[in-house]
Amino acid sequence: MKNPIAGGAGRAAPVEVALPHSRASQRRTLTGLLENERFLALVLLTPTVLILGMFIAYPFGMGVWFALSSISVGNPGHFVGLKNFVKAWNDSIFRIAFWNTSVYTFWATIFKLVLGMWLALLLNRHFRGKRIVRASMLLPFIVPTVLSTFAWRWMFDPTFSVLNWTLYKTGFIVTKLPFLSNGDWALWCAIVVNTWRGMPFFAITLLAGLQTINTDLHEAASLDGANGWKRFWYVTWPLLKPVTVVVVVFSIIQTFSDFQLIYVLTGGGPANSTHLLATYAYQIGVAAGLLGEGAAISLCMLPVLFVVVWIQLRYLRRLEGA
């Protein structure tokens, strides 16, 4: 239909008198300006953009420059191209650190996801004392990592380890386990501590996701003859996927860039065998003062983080599209 039909044409009297544009001038005042959507958005976003620009974008650019220069403490340095990256690549400790970071991130994330999901499913049921159990399970996540890691370090102590004592007294071992004094053992210890610390976050977030799932679905599924495992696999898991993706990505970023846990637990030792990228960057950039090389090492985290976030953004966008 191309033409509008104004039926009862006589009634829609044409407006011919030019009416005054009231208060058009008021838009110039601040209150008037704030009524403008774009201006208001500008005002509201400025503080955030300034802070993030000043303390993220600017240092990030500076970090890139550092990585490409020979700067060190007390020496402004000059442009050296990719020399720092090449040096890192040829550095066996860097390679170990990169490998450690990947192993640490991969296994810790898997453990956190599996155990966190399991715990969430347990906590989603009704039992007495549920609230207190749920609250106490969050403790590892909220207590400062450095402080709780000290407790673990003490539990792993070469001489006074309570874990060794228990295993010895119960007859599982006859000599002490070298928790932190052997490189391979130490990395797995770090994975255990990271899992212990991060699992509650998975559990409580997945629990929030679980609680949005309608129980009718489970009843329908069990009427259809699905057992517990099948109900989880065909009903719960698909609905939890979006939440899971968000948590996993968040956790990968945190774990991949982790610093404090290793710093306290092993300090990168024994013999530089447990460094992560972040602790090694600290050792080179801060402890040794080679700012350029340190910046280059920490920049090596970026591609991995970028891929992870990109996958997440794509996944979430596809989800919104569907």
């Binding site: 993220i56 990030f60 500076m62 970090g63 550092f66 970023i253 860039s257 610093f259 970026l302 983080l305």
Partner: peptide, 10 residues
Amino acid sequence: LVPPTLLFIP
């Protein structure tokens, strides 16, 4: 994307 451990040197 840019965690503190990536930025602390600059």
